[in-house]
């Protein structure tokens, strides 16, 4: 079973990455992540919002209410400078981790 720390780390990376493309509200964020990872990562409401609120507390993202073209009010999140700064080392860290796991599984199968 994947530990909570790993899950949280990948979720944070996914959210920061998708917000790098532009501001999004929660539902659209979950939809994009699912679409871009071809269903490998799925955020339910219960998983997404506590994560968004935690990231907002840390100052990585900022939410603000906006009115969409349909007239519906939605809370849109955007990356803060601190979030942008966090993204690059986080990406590097996860790339190293996946690289290491890949090497490990190759050795195990050899």
């Amino acid at each position: 079973m994947i530990g909570a720390g790993v899950k949280r780390g990948t979720a944070e990376l996914a959210i920061l990455s998708v917000l790098e493309e532009g501001p999004l509200h929660g539902y659209e964020m979950a939809r994009r992540i699912e679409e871009q990872t071809k269903g490998a990562l799925r955020f339910t409401l219960a998983a997404l919002y506590p994560m968004l609120y935690r990231m907002e507390q840390r100052g990585w993202i900022r939410g603000a209410w906006e009115t969409s073209q349909s007239g519906r009010r939605k809370r849109c999140y955007r990356l803060t400078p601190a979030g942008k700064k966090k993204l690059s080392p986080l990406r590097k860290e996860w790339a190293e981790l996946f690289g290491a796991l890949k090497r490990l599984t190759k050795v195990a199968h050899a």
Binding site: T44, A46, Y49, P50, Q57, R58, A82
Partner: peptide, 26 residues
């Protein structure tokens, strides 16, 4: 079905919005 346990979600939201995980910022 996106929320299996609403009480659990309530707790999670409360913690996320009120408890400062890092008392000191980066």
């Amino acid at each position: 079905a996106q929320v299996a346990d609403w009480q659990d979600l309530r707790r999670e939201i409360q913690i996320a919005r009120t408890v400062k995980e890092n008392l000191m910022n980066d």
